[in-house]
Amino acid sequence: MGALSSLRVLDLTQVLAGPYCTMLLADMGADVVKIERPGGDLIRPNPPFLDDPEAEAYGGYFQSVNRGKRSLELDLGDADDREAFLSLVERADVVVENYRAGTMEKFDLDYETLRERNPELIYSSIRGFGDPRTGETDRQGQPSFDLVAQALGGVMEITGHPDGPPTKVGPGIGDLFTATLNCIGILAAVYHRERTGEGQYVDTAMYDAMLSLTERAIYQHSYTGEPPTRRGNSHPTLFPYDAFETADGYVVIAAFGTNHWRALCEAMDRPDLAADYPDPESRLGNRTHLRAEIADWARSRATDEICSLLEGRVPAAPVQNTADIFDDPHVRDREMLVPVDQPGADGSVEIAGNPIKMTETPPRPRGRAPLLDEHRDELLGSATEAETDATEAADD
């Protein structure tokens, strides 16, 4: 039993932001029904594959963010399929979609229409620029992807090295962070409905989410009047807080607290630095000189040696690649790599686990991603049975 085991979610989303949001709900036990357009989610055929793409039902991208869901293929422009969808809406708790603003209106399946069929429904949308219901702007209706959101929201301007171009963050945070915030909004709406019986519209925009994520840049601009820009791996107000090249890789060191600074200087056998720069202000004011001193020390030592010298005294860690992550016992102990079946291949694959840990109702991936339309009979069959039961009750 998951914490959300009584929640039924109709998921009309595709690609990344929406599916990640509903994946979080599925991991926590919600029954997530993935309503797919004819041909399925656009990302189903995206690589990587284990073997022959022709023999596989979907690639790793789809598997990772659609695990534990049920699939139903519907053409919302078809009258019968539209009615099938509405029959599911009547028994659903949440509908989630990530179309452009106005798309659901074209199918006559907007929030207001669905609310007539289910007054307690929670309707949630993820869009690049939000929905007019929560604040109308001239950008709504424009397409957006992670790269666009990171660019507009200020993330790219503060990411990268000072002498390099604006750089996107590696993971698709424009999608993932927006999805996480949307999931929080849905859960808040569910809690509100439990207390009041009232459904509502939940709207999360990618542009808005990136502004929230760049909170440091926003307040810095407000306080100083200057737009922050790229600083590499360093921090604008804390030092040392940076990545340093080692003899065999890179290590990050975060020793901005005076106790950490003293421990770092001791490990470097440089008591003079601890004495000459005893407070955060002096260290920050002389960061160029001090960074060079730390860089010289780190460059001649192996990453493991540095981490051993600093372990337990200074926040430090190696910069790991995914091979290192797969070998890390901590990751296994925390169940952050989870095996799931891969249709069309001989064997299972591993995907990222759920970082939310709960003692009584632990979230976890609840099986592989679905095949397209895999659950049609059980979903529409149950809808037909519910309609028959309702008719019989009325006749009685």
Results as ranks from 00 to 15, higher is better:
180 T>S: 14
180 T>G: 04
180 T>D: 00
181 L>Q: 14
181 L>W: 09
182 N>K: 04
182 N>I: 01
182 N>W: 03
182 N>A: 13
182 N>S: 13
183 C>N: 02
183 C>E: 09
183 C>R: 01
184 I>G: 11
185 G>D: 10
186 I>G: 11
186 I>V: 15
186 I>H: 09
186 I>W: 10
186 I>K: 08
187 L>N: 13
187 L>I: 15
187 L>G: 05
187 L>R: 03
188 A>D: 11
188 A>R: 10
190 V>P: 11
191 Y>T: 08
191 Y>P: 02
191 Y>M: 11
191 Y>K: 07
191 Y>E: 15
191 Y>S: 09
191 Y>F: 12
192 H>R: 14
192 H>T: 07
193 R>A: 12
193 R>G: 11
193 R>N: 12
194 E>L: 05
194 E>T: 01
194 E>Y: 03
194 E>C: 03
194 E>W: 05
195 R>S: 07
195 R>T: 06
195 R>G: 12
195 R>Y: 06
196 T>A: 06
196 T>V: 08
196 T>S: 15
197 G>S: 07
197 G>L: 09
197 G>I: 07
197 G>E: 09
197 G>T: 06
197 G>M: 05
198 E>T: 12
198 E>S: 06
199 G>E: 12
199 G>H: 05
199 G>W: 12
199 G>Q: 08
199 G>C: 07
200 Q>Y: 11
200 Q>V: 02
201 Y>V: 04
201 Y>G: 00
201 Y>S: 01
201 Y>E: 03
201 Y>M: 08
201 Y>I: 02
202 V>H: 03
202 V>W: 05
202 V>A: 00
202 V>K: 05
202 V>Y: 04
203 D>C: 01
204 T>W: 02
204 T>A: 13
204 T>P: 00
204 T>G: 00
204 T>H: 11
205 A>T: 01
205 A>W: 12
206 M>T: 02
206 M>I: 01
206 M>V: 01
206 M>F: 06
207 Y>P: 01
207 Y>R: 04
208 D>T: 05
208 D>W: 04
209 A>Y: 02
209 A>M: 04
209 A>C: 08
209 A>L: 04
210 M>W: 06
210 M>E: 14
210 M>G: 02
210 M>S: 03
210 M>L: 15
210 M>C: 07
210 M>R: 08
210 M>Y: 08
211 L>A: 05
211 L>N: 11
211 L>T: 07
211 L>H: 13
212 S>R: 11
212 S>A: 13
212 S>V: 09
213 L>N: 03
213 L>F: 15
213 L>V: 03
213 L>S: 08
213 L>Y: 15
214 T>E: 11
214 T>K: 03
214 T>G: 01
214 T>S: 15
214 T>D: 15
214 T>R: 03
215 E>Q: 13
215 E>F: 03
216 R>P: 02
217 A>Q: 09
217 A>Y: 05
217 A>L: 08
217 A>V: 09
217 A>W: 05
218 I>Q: 13
218 I>L: 14
218 I>D: 04
218 I>C: 07
218 I>S: 11
219 Y>G: 01
219 Y>Q: 13
219 Y>K: 02
